[in-house]
């Protein structure tokens, strides 16, 4: 295989907050090949959004320290000013935000918003952009697109808005799409539809996708590879096919236990993992998961486990891995 589309190496994102340094991403490395779909999974606060935004080059200049490297198609993203990244945004890499309620401008017609991303992104004339925007509305499966073109976001349901957001993000044919919890806040059937739509668009356009979610169920069926994130680090990396049968990290196991089952009614509270993630403002010694881990031993509290290979294409960072082999 030739060089991957995206190579992230030893990425650190540290916020300078009034209460001290907050390392939100602490040395993340992974890569995404062309056409590949990877999932990034972790609890709330594990740093997924910060990671995604850092990969986009979106961290503000002030108040954030970045180190490491993000190579997108050979171009370095880290510590580059926004002016130099603008030509990559839209046509190379695009982002789908979490909340379709706030990622569309409430006072502008949805068609105009999509058309504008085409005008800005690839310099289409207004008329061509509008024609293309209408096509995109058709592609993302919006019924009676001519009418919806002139609708305001408040006139559309959440699922429809997210379709518009997807149309807008994909308008300039990006090679890589980062979807940060694209279905949180939508109900389950619509979640599935939106994820199906993303799958379809990905197949048609041969894009690579990074799907960020706190829901293992979402990535379990729709990705090629899964990275499990905890407290700013990747603690396990494994092919999706191995998720249920060959995971090694106790945190992955705990996440799997808290994943919704079909037989559960939707919106029932899951057995969340007991305890809460560590306070990143305080220095960490040992394994970040130790306080909540039922496999923890003395070494876990004094030494930090590094990612190590299990011999195949998986890696995990744990001294006492779960020995699942089915």
């Amino acid at each position: 295989m030739n060089t991957p589309l995206l190579v992230v190496s030893d990425l650190h994102t540290t916020f300078e907050t009034p209460r001290g340094l907050l390392p939100a991403v602490r040395g993340v490395s992974f890569s995404v090949a062309e056409n590949q779909t990877v999932g990034i999974v972790g609890e709330s606060g594990s740093g997924k959004t910060v990671l995604a935004r850092t990969i986009m080059g979106l961290q503000p200049i002030r108040g954030v320290k970045l180190s490491g490297s993000v190579l997108l198609n050979g171009s370095e993203i880290v510590n580059r000013p926004h002016d130099e990244l603008r030509h990559l945004w839209g046509s190379q890499v695009a982002m789908i935000f979490q909340d379709p309620m706030t990622s569309l401008n409430p006072v502008r017609k949805v068609g105009d918003q999509i058309a504008e991303s085409l005008q800005v992104g690839i310099g289409l004339k207004r008329k061509e952009a509008r024609a293309r925007a209408l096509e995109l509305l058709v592609q993302v499966g919006i019924p009676s697109p001519e009418d919806r073109f002139h609708a305001y976001p408040s006139h559309l349901s959440g699922g429809m808005r997210q379709r518009v957001v997807i149309a807008s993000a994909l308008s300039c044919n990006p090679k890589l799409v980062l979807a940060d919890e694209p279905t949180t806040g939508l109900d389950v059937t619509i979640q599935a539809q939106i994820l199906d739509l993303l799958d379809k668009m990905k197949a048609e356009r041969k894009m690579s996708t990074i799907l960020v979610t706190h829901d293992l169920g979402v990535v379990a069926t729709r990705t090629d590879h899964i990275y499990v994130m905890y407290a700013g680090r990747i603690v396990e990396s494994l092919p999706t096919a191995d998720l249920h049968s060959h995971h090694r990290h106790p945190y992955t196991a705990a996440l799997l236990n808290s994943t919704p089952r079909i037989e559960n009614k939707s919106h029932t509270r899951l057995t969340a993992i007991a305890g809460s993630p560590p306070n990143l403002l305080k220095p960490l010694t040992g394994c970040a998961f130790a306080a909540r881990c039922s496999y923890a031993s003395d070494v876990c509290r004094t030494q930090t486990p590094e990612l190590r290979s299990d011999g195949g294409s998986s890696e995990f960072a744990c001294f006492n891995p779960v020995g699942v082999t089915v």
């Binding site: 986009m56 979106l58 926004h82 603008r86 030509h87 945004w89 839209g90 695009a94 982002m95 935000f97 979490q98 909340d99 706030t102 990622s103 569309l104 401008n105 409430p106 504008e116 991303s117 800005v120 992104g121 957001v165 807008s168 993000a169 308008s171 300039c172």
Partner: peptide, 12 residues
């Protein structure tokens, strides 16, 4: 608002 960020990353 996220839509401002969205416009920003679409190159505006």
């Amino acid at each position: 608002k996220e839509y401002v960020l969205a416009a920003h990353v679409q190159g505006a």
